[in-house]
């Protein structure tokens, strides 16, 4: 039985449709990451400034996006934007927007954490040769914080990719949604198809995330080796 089930993947255009769904997933994750990272860098730098009200506001922004589960964030935007603000977006764009704001929040913490962990005497010696604030960030703080930020950002990317799985909930035609359609359409001919379709999607996610995690781990290990001499 289980043997015949696997052929559901190659029936008609099924495999191509799944790949198409995967493309939707990857695209949303990629766009969300690009804009979210840019947003997060700006917010993270702002959070290292002395201005207290600004810091408090940005901290609250972070905490909100951290405390509320992403599924709930998605539904907050899904219901509230169109109904309260008359702002209608197709589901995939709405999801991208939510992800951008979420990634921005998480990224701001990565950036801030890395910036403030640059040793104080580095800042002082930068000041001692007359660097202004912009130059201090540009030549000292940001370059030195990158080795901390890059692995953390790659890990964030793997989280974003995993989290795209919830797009299903607002009916985006992502890989899981298409998988479900294929399972339902073939339920009679291939009762074990569900196993193979979900198995394949499972594998898709793993194949994208595993190399990224591996890369992040390697960079982190190198960073620690360097830091400890």
């Amino acid at each position: 039985m289980a043997h015949s089930g696997i052929s559901v993947l190659f029936e008609g255009t099924n495999f191509m449709r799944l790949l198409g769904g995967l493309w939707v997933t990857v695209k949303i994750a990629a766009v969300a990451l690009i804009f979210g990272i840019i947003l997060g860098i700006i917010l993270g730098v702002l959070r290292t400034f002395k201005n207290r009200p600004l810091r408090v506001v940005l901290r609250l922004y972070l905490e909100f996006f951290r405390v509320v589960p992403t599924v709930v964030l998605l539904f907050l935007f899904y219901y509230i934007l169109p109904r309260q603000m008359n702002f209608n977006l197709p589901a995939d764009q709405l999801a991208t927007l939510v992800f951008v704001l979420w990634v921005g929040a998480e990224m701001s913490d990565i950036v801030r954490g890395a910036l403030i962990s640059v040793p104080r005497h580095q800042i002082e010696s930068g000041k001692a040769i007359g660097l202004n604030r912009f130059q201090l960030y540009r030549y000292v703080l940001i370059p030195q914080s990158l080795t901390l930020e890059i692995p953390a950002t790659i890990n964030l990317a793997t989280r974003v990719i995993k989290t795209t799985s919830i797009l299903l909930l607002i009916s985006v035609m992502d890989v899981i949604n298409i998988g479900q359609q294929i399972i339902e359409a073939n339920n009679h001919t291939y009762p074990t198809g569900v196993f193979w379709v979900y198995g394949l999607i499972f594998l898709f996610y793993f194949l994208i995330d595993y190399p990224l995690s591996w890369w992040a781990k390697r960079l982190e290990k190198r960073r620690l080796e360097k830091a400890n001499g």
Binding site: A2, S165, Y198
Partner: peptide, 23 residues
């Protein structure tokens, strides 16, 4: 650890809930 960390909970649940009964 690698499998668990690099796949979404949602798919893990679907697998348990929908695919395992087939077995």
């Amino acid at each position: 650890v690698e499998i668990s960390r690099n796949t979404p909970l949602l798919i893990q649940l679907f697998f348990l809930y929908y695919a395992f009964p087939v077995l």
